[in-house]
C-alpha cells in the first residue's frame, strides 16, 4: 500500500533528524522564528545525537571518565550514527555500546574498555531490577543439604572479564590519575547483587567461587557445584556465608 501523506511527512522528519536531511521534507515545512526551513530541521537534527549521547553518558559514566570528553564523545557520535534507538526508553539505549567500544581501532591502547562498559551496563540493569529477598540465614541453614538445588535470589548477576575493571569503576569521579596497564591487566570475576533491598553490591570472586556460583545458577546441586569448582572447605564455607547473609538463596529444594 502506498504510504499516506502523514506517513511520508513523518518518515521525512525521522530520516532528517537521525540520518540524512530529506529535501522533500524540507520543502514541505517552514522554519519557525527567523529560521529557514533547513535551519528549523537542523534544530531537530542537532537534538537527536545530543539526547542519545546524554543517555550513553549516564550509563557509561566510568568509560567517559577514563576516555576523556573528546574520545568518549567521538565514540558516541560514531555509535549513534549507526545505531538507531528501538526502545521507548532512552535508558535502554546502548546495549551494544560495550562491543562497539571493544572493537574500535584505538581499543588496543585501552583493551579493558569493553569490559568496563559491560560492567556499567550490567550495573544499570541491576539497578532497575526488582529486589527479591531470599531465605534468611537461619531458614537456609535449616533447608539446605548437600544434594539441594539452590535457586538464587537477590537478584544476583555473575560477570567474568578478561580485564580488571571494578577498581577503575570505583575510582572517584574527580580522580584524574592516568590509567596504567597495572590497573587493568589480568582477569576479574564479579558478582553484582541486591540483598533484598535496592542498593546494588559488588563482590570480587575467585575463579573457584565464580565456578561454584555459575554451577549453582545452572541448577547443579550444592555438592556438585562445590566439587567441580575446586573450592576448599574454608572457601566453600565463606561462599555459603556470603549467600546466607545476603539472603541470596530463594529456595533450597531436592
Amino acid at each position: 500500500m502506498k504510504p499516506g501523506r502523514l506517513e511520508r511527512l513523518q518518515r521525512g522528519l525521522v530520516r532528517s533528524a537521525t540520518c540524512a536531511v530529506d529535501p522533500d521534507f524540507v520543502a514541505a515545512v517552514e522554519g519557525g522564528g527567523r529560521l529557514s526551513a533547513a535551519e528549523a530541521v537542523a534544530v531537530y537534527r542537532r537534538g537527536y545525537p545530543a539526547r542519545l549521547t546524554e543517555a550513553l553518558g549516564e550509563t557509561f559514566e566510568a568509560c567517559w571518565r577514563v576516555m576523556g570528553d573528546e574520545d568518549f564523545l567521538a565514540a558516541c557520535r560514531e555509535f549513534v550514527a549507526r545505531t538507531p534507538s528501538r526502545s521507548h526508553n532512552l535508558s535502554d539505549y546502548g546495549e551494544t555500546f560495550p562491543d562497539f567500544l571493544a572493537a574500535r581501532a584505538d581499543a588496543e591502547a585501552a583493551p579493558f574498555l569493553g569490559d568496563l562498559a559491560r560492567f556499567e551496563w550490567a550495573f544499570k540493569e541491576l539497578f532497575h531490577a526488582a529486589p527479591r529477598p531470599g531465605l534468611s540465614a537461619a531458614a537456609l541453614a535449616k533447608a539446605a543439604r548437600p544434594d539441594s538445588v539452590l535457586r538464587l535470589a537477590g537478584p544476583l548477576v555473575l560477570l567474568s572479564f578478561g580485564h580488571r575493571v571494578y577498581g577503575l569503576w570505583k575510582r572517584d569521579r574527580a580522580d584524574a590519575t592516568p590509567v596504567t596497564r597495572a590497573d587493568w591487566e589480568g582477569p576479574e570475576r564479579l558478582a553484582l547483587y541486591k540483598e533484598g533491598g535496592n542498593p546494588v553490591f559488588v563482590r570480587e570472586l575467585s575463579a573457584p567461587e565464580h565456578a561454584a556460583l555459575a554451577a549453582l545458577a545452572a541448577g547443579r546441586t550444592a555438592a556438585d557445584a562445590l566439587a567441580g569448582s575446586g573450592l576448599d572447605e574454608a572457601g566453600a564455607a565463606a561462599l555459603f556465608a556470603f549467600l546466607a547473609e545476603g539472603g541470596l538463596v530463594a529456595e533450597a529444594s531436592r
Binding site: 513523518q10 522528519l13 531537530y44 538507531p84 528501538r86 521507548h88
Partner: peptide, 11 residues
C-alpha cells in the same frame, strides 16, 4: 519517531 528508529523528541 518510528518504531524502528525512535527520535526521543516531541516532533
Amino acid at each position: 519517531g518510528a518504531h524502528a528508529s525512535n527520535v526521543h523528541d516531541l516532533l
